[in-house]
Design a protein around this nucleic acid. Structure first.
Lengths: 234, 234
DNA sequence: CTTTAAATTTAGTTGAGACTAAAAATAAAT
DNA sequence: ATTTATTTTTAGTCTCAACTAAATTTAAAG
């Protein structure tokens, strides 16, 4: 079974990504992971990729060679990889698909917070430009997904994000609105959503001690361990 | 890149297909094509599959062996193949995905008749049971797709179809409603939709000669060649 | 029957993208 | 400057699902 291109009915004057090579799902995933690791790590090593892709280091080296030869990444052996401009565009396209899909699943198909990631992970590689455009339009070209993560625009720019801090940095008495939740862990997402600690929720910092922080949400008050508080940004 | 199962959060008492093996997209496609060829052909040969899958006969033989060993088909060498009960269930599941998706793309994402097939072809292999259930429910558990083809039910029964005839069998003066269009050819679908020869359209047979048939649709009258008339069932 | 044409199967190859085991390079610690 | 531990790369293997070329089986025609 050979994967076919499906760029929709791109007219002659639709450039977007010129000479975009047809990539396998694996290759798209490598680029996406490199991009996301880079947001956090400064350098992206073979081992980083091995861990995040759950693939042996030797396999990563193999794929790095291929992506290098395709000029999608730069590789300094034993040092790490960086996306080329084209590589980054492709990574952003995959990310755009993923985040649009996550929002779509929540808004139109009644998915819950914890169900969207896996589904989007599979769909992101197979939807056409037409599909991407259709759901984006339907949702009014949104800029944030259900975790508060920015959705790259059609021309693959990342929308401005306001500066955020994790809730554990609030001081007692301070109010805030949840803007972003940095986890895909189903159990954590489920727990947070049961506590109504979801995007746009209003919270009040009550206080903190070594065990964690105390938050008031609506009429309820909760003790949140630091490990989880660090995932919630306001 | 290894394909993962994604049967949704099947509780312990969801049986549906017991011990359903995890199939590759190729394998699912073979089963689907065997099913569809069988609806038309009486026997399904290596060559039939080679043509419809656009794969060399030798490759078909190879896959036939694998699917046989998995007990998804029976194979009488040099004769042809038949789906086992499990093989048929899987074929129907793929077909259900495909047809639900086609209808969904038309009803909710504004796709046109000619755009839905390719998109559904890719999506059918990756959507979860959850996704299938969600779109089915949203559309009121429909039984016909945009070509008029029956959509297998959740428990994989094919809904009853009324007996139909192709329009070329109508006699002059007879009125009818289009129920089904048996092609995926984009140009033909486009043409038919421009002529408003779409599902549920009312037509009047005016007459016929060796060049084709004359149909009245609304206020317009068209000459339709037999090759195309045979695709339209009422 | 025997020949011939067509369909099918066998055998072996290829390319992706994983894997393991072993070799080599780097970085840190004496 | 060596040794040691860690990371990375090399080399070779495996599986899947395609491929080609050659061999075999079946069916039709003389």
């Amino acid at each position: 079974m050979v994967r076919m291109a499906h760029n929709g009915s791109n007219g002659p004057n639709k450039l977007k990504i010129m000479d975009k090579p047809q990539l396998s799902e694996s290759q798209e995933d490598y680029l996406k992971h490199i991009f996301k690791l880079r947001e956090v790590n400064e350098t992206v090593t073979t081992q980083d990729l091995s861990e995040s892709l759950k693939v042996r280091p030797a396999s990563v080296t193999g794929m790095i060679k291929k992506l290098s030869s395709m000029e999608l990444i730069y590789h300094r052996p034993y040092k790490g990889v960086v996306l080329t401009e084209l590589g980054e565009k492709i990574a952003l396209e995959v990310l755009r698909h993923h985040r649009l899909l996550e929002l779509y699943l929540v808004d139109h198909l009644n998915y819950t917070w914890d169900e969207i990631h896996d589904e989007a992970e599979r769909l992101e590689h197979v939807i056409s430009e037409k599909f991407e455009a259709a759901i984006s339009k339907l949702m009014g070209n949104p800029t944030r997904d259900p975790h508060g993560d920015p959705i790259p625009s059609v021309d693959l720019e990342i929308p401005e994000m306001p500066d955020l801090v994790s809730v554990d940095r609030l001081h007692a008495g301070q109010e805030a609105v949840i803007q972003r939740v940095l986890t895909q862990d189903k159990d954590i997402l489920n727990m947070l959503s049961r506590l109504e600690l979801t995007i746009d929720a209003n919270i009040l910092m009550v206080g903190s001690d070594k065990t964690g922080i105390r938050l008031k949400v609506g009429n309820n008050q909760y003790l949140i361990p630091y490990s989880i508080a660090k995932l919630i940004w306001v």
